[in-house]
Design a protein around this nucleic acid. Structure first.
Lengths: 377, 377
DNA sequence: TCTGTTCGTCCGGGACGCTGACAAACTCCG
DNA sequence: CGGAGTTTGTCAGCGTCCCGGACGAACAGA
């Protein structure tokens, strides 16, 4: 009766199948090695039952989070538990070299976990930019040279030997928050990532919203924080020009703040009471709050998760939260990311598992799982 | 071989079933009266086939468009062809009186088409406000008194004797444009209605996006066109305060325009060359364009349809179109509503049909249909 | 040791839909 | 005008999937 194991009779009750059919299913699954005997029940009235558990080491999935600076690879078993991880600086030569690098990292992860690489059934990769299912190409990925010139999904499949789902990294982060983060209860929410750039992933009724061209959630282009007709916002987007990482540093300097290398330093000075830092964060929060209101007006999410190196800062989350009630009567739930920088890799693993379940059973939603299942080996 | 009729062998080819099974299906459908013999094929090699067609008069569906001033009821057959319509001024007493009024109009429509009221299988009603599936109640419907105090779906079912889907009217208009309007090819688009108020219905991958509380598309609350922290936008919404029907009239007056009763008059003067009217339309177009950019940034629709008494004006659509290229490289497709004021009622009929198909076959998407199918009797 | 309960299997059967054979009906062409 | 080729629709038989009920096996508790 312990979690993760099931007797034949229980399976019949849970699924609504007859005992007969449930037994046959278990017989076949055991014959193919998908499940294995675990033990016997004891101490209950009636005959004791043999229980079976899923053999989580029969198949694995690969999650990849490809960023401009780092490649993060995670190998997970059928239960979604990550059994090994590898991180490396992204190959600066880009393109096929990155594909090759992912192949090597995948092999390394499998080896260090003692997993036969052939047992990896499929995988998912998140990357910045817009993935186009038709051509298998990633567009608008300025951080990684040459990646938009190759059929990434196809090259990965060739190199790795299994199917890879390619998806926008923020979309995967949203998947991650839904699967194992703070949106488990919610089918309609948005994940806003604020770091160097600004982006968003959303789900509506449990489905990712990708948009007609895969560009849904490109809130960098929200006409907020500047003159939307100004040509400066034309490329990067008006909002990103106003509160992207670079813009935040500029704001701080413009307010007479001492030289700051990165945004993290500004937050440290905020905590030290630096008035310029306070004003900077306040300004960013005002614009971010407006952006969240725009998202709310369009999508009506149950909550909005703030992520990214800047967005997840509690100082910023608090500042945004305190501004929101001034917009409208019903408050909007805003939470910092529960998974932090691991959101995308967790989402990649979840997406890969979903692809596996879908391929095997036609399942299109992930089962809930205990918290401790997501831990590095 | 004519559209709408099918032989048993064709059914087998189309569905992928065996000839045998297809025959059995037709036999059963005919026995229950769902289909009937239509004729024989001629002039082809091989044995001639008997063709069958759906008996569209076996069941009907009811579409209702409930507005603050008018109730519009349409009765449609299984093919979606509207066989009779009724329009009346909305009962000002609101609440149950409106339910009663809809019941009477339904009976009237059935009688004038010679349809037994018992043949109506189900219906759909669109109304302003936010419908809550749990309680069957409509919230925030200021135009119709007392409607938010009763279980509308339940009362309608009791009065009419069949199931009624209740949905936001703009969502139904979006459904209408997808089914029989200008979004037939597109599964991801937005329908923006600009009239007295401003609202939006959207579909993502062919599914209506309703949001967590049914308030998706409430773009009246977009933080555009004014100070979003200003308390004046708190209730009506910042954008609606800026470009709602009332706001447009105010703008025109503020610009020194002669007294205008309604927005239609402003457009007439625009055509006559009135400079205040030109400036008014220009200002509204600028804000509307920004709103569309915000929608695009979040949802990435394939196109945005402009509807409502003001939004569908070609002068406004043109003005918005000319502004959009200044925002970003890739242009956004913007079209005036193809169905105009009939969008919601057509969408209501389509939604009711969908509910019927879903109940009968588990189908969740509407079949395409020739244009001329939507015509009043 | 007996009773009540639960587990898992065996047997028969129904629902569903497929395959292959075959008669019927039609066009085409010599 | 008649045979060849083609298509339609039916019949008989079969396979798959799953169910229900009967039944023996195994266990706890009195």
């Amino acid at each position: 009766m312990r979690a993760g194991s099931l007797s034949r009779a229980e399976l019949a009750r849970v699924t609504g199948l007859s005992k007969q059919t449930a037994s046959e299913v278990v017989r076949e699954l055991e014959a193919n090695g998908w499940v294995r005997e675990r033990g016997q029940t004891q101490g209950f009235v009636g005959r004791s039952a043999t229980t079976y558990e899923i053999d989580v080491s029969r198949r694995y999935v690969l999650g990849v989070d490809l960023g401009g600076t780092k490649v993060h690879v995670a190998l997970a078993d059928l239960a979604g538990a990550i059994v090994s991880e590898e991180v490396e600086a992204t190959d600066r030569r880009g393109g096929r070299h990155v594909v090759e690098q992912i192949g090597a990292l995948s092999a390394k992860a499998a080896a260090s976990a003692g997993v036969d690489h052939g047992r990896i059934h499929c995988g998912a990769m998140g990357s910045p930019g817009v993935f186009q299912p038709g051509s298998g190409r990633i567009n608008i990925a300025p951080n990684i040279p040459g990646l938009d010139e190759i059929d990434v999904a196809g090259e990965l499949r060739r190199r790795l030997g299994f199917e890879m789902v390619v998806e926008n990294d923020v979309n995967l982060a949203a998947m991650g928050e839904r699967w194992r983060g703070c949106c488990r209860e919610s089918g309609t929410f948005a994940f806003v990532a604020l770091g160097t750039g600004i982006g968003m992933g959303m789900m509506a009724d449990g489905r990712l919203v990708r948009g007609a061209r895969g560009a849904a959630g490109e809130i960098a282009y929200l006409p907020l924080g500047g003159d939307p007709f100004d040509s400066r916002g034309y490329r990067l987007g008006t909002l990103e020009t106003a509160i992207g990482g670079v813009a935040i540093l500029e704001r701080y300097r413009g307010l007479g703040g001492a030289d700051a290398h990165d945004v993290r330093a500004i937050f440290e000075r905020w905590n030290a009471g630096d008035p310029a830092a306070r004003t900077t964060v306040e300004e960013v929060a005002r614009l971010l709050a407006q952006a969240l209101m725009a998202v709310r007006a369009v999508l009506d999410p149950e909550l909005i998760v703030l992520g990214g190196s800047i967005g997840a800062r509690p100082e910023l989350v608090d500042a945004v939260r305190s501004l929101l009630p001034r917009f409208m009567p019903e408050p909007l739930r805003v939470e910092p990311s529960a998974l932090g920088s691991r959101a995308a890799i967790v989402g990649a693993v979840g997406t890969a598992l979903l692809a596996l379940y879908d391929a095997m059973f036609g399942v299109t939603d992930l089962p809930a799982e205990p918290d401790d299942a997501v831990t590095a080996a």
